[in-house]
Amino acid sequence: MAELEISYFAWVREAMGQSGEILPLPPGVADVSALIAWLAARDERGAAAFARPERIRVAVDGEMVSANRSIVAAREVALFPPVTGG
């Protein structure tokens, strides 16, 4: 099964207690919103980090995308809050 590299940034990283992880694509998870729901249901850290999915922004393989983007062929998914640079 294909492996997916997930990275977390800012308060998402702090809530998850790690900067990233590598895991097999969970069964039945085909897009970003399903992945976020799966992480939220997995454990307490995920539940805290993804309590409000509308506050999460996503990049798949380096490209900012919306939550309905397919991750079936993705290598890397980054999950983070709205950006605040400048």
Binding site: A59, P82, T84
Partner: peptide, 27 residues
């Protein structure tokens, strides 16, 4: 450039204060 980099560049600000508070800046 300054307007767009505030919304387009993956950067996140975290503030620390003299009274010990630490907080992530909200967009």
């Amino acid at each position: 450039l300054i307007d767009r980099l505030k919304t387009d560049a993956p950067l996140w600000k975290r503030e620390s204060f003299a009274d010990g508070r630490v907080q992530w800046v909200e967009a």
